[in-house]
Amino acid sequence: MAAVRERLLAWLHPRPQARAWALLAPGTLWLLLFFLVPLIIMFVYSMMPRGIYGGVDPGFTLEHYRRFFDPLYLDILRRTFVWSIACTAICLVLGYPVAYAIARGGQWKNLLLFLVVLPFWTSFLVRTFAMIFLLRDSGLVNNWMLRLGVIEHSITLLYTPFAVMAGLVYGFLPFMILPIYASLEKLDLSLLEAAEVLGARPVERFRRVTLPLSMPGVVAGCLLVFIPALGSFLTADLLGGAKQMMIGNLVQNQFSAARNWPFGSAASFIVMALVLLAVMFYLRVKDRAPGEAPLR
């Protein structure tokens, strides 16, 4: 054992590249085999004819991508897009003031931050069930509204677009708060002081100093909400009805009930492509260094 170790060290010592790759190899191999290769296979599947019992038949076709121009599927694509953007916008409006409050939270900062990190990591399934528990016909929201006399009969909240939107925002809001908080935290307070000395009122100080300097966080937060919303499946599955399908549900459906694997692969590839486009957009915006935006 010792001799092997000596020989290995002697061999690795003059080869820093080899040493780096020895550390990288096992994990990288895992990611290649079980992440990248499956994605490539999925892409190939999306261009093959459908097999009768699930799976695919040999051949090449673009039929599955063409099917997305069918109004039925265009509708799903559009809904997915519109809802993801709406969810992002709502999260931004709700999240920014919270991030601001945490960054200026003084002694409470750690606790407030933990209370945002916690839902970030708790089971999405359980959190979605919590929404069902509140929103169903005999649920608490209806119950309380009846008691307060806001409504006279219980109203249908579950299995509506409202329920899906509530679930999406509830699920992804922490993704918005954390990066905005991070950029506000880094903000140099002497800049605000300077602005104050120069006579800027609070609103003006916010609009012309704080807001521009927190833009990297805003952009990152929007991306971190938009991406999982785009690929979400559970929310629309449990909170939406049959008419509230998003593209994630379409993918799942093709692999379970419909048994059309290549079409499901094509839908899945479209999700992946949209996500990568969003990431590339983010990297371009980030490279323009809005963190040092000119203070006009």
């Binding site: 780096a20 690929g231 799942q252 499901g264 899945s268 992946m272």
Partner: peptide
Amino acid sequence: HRFRGRTAFEGFLYVPIVTPEIVVGISLLI
């Protein structure tokens, strides 16, 4: 360690994080 392709590798590491779970799931199923 400094090694060739380091920046690209770091970028690659972030891809599984942004990839929707449903895509990971069905590609592995396939």
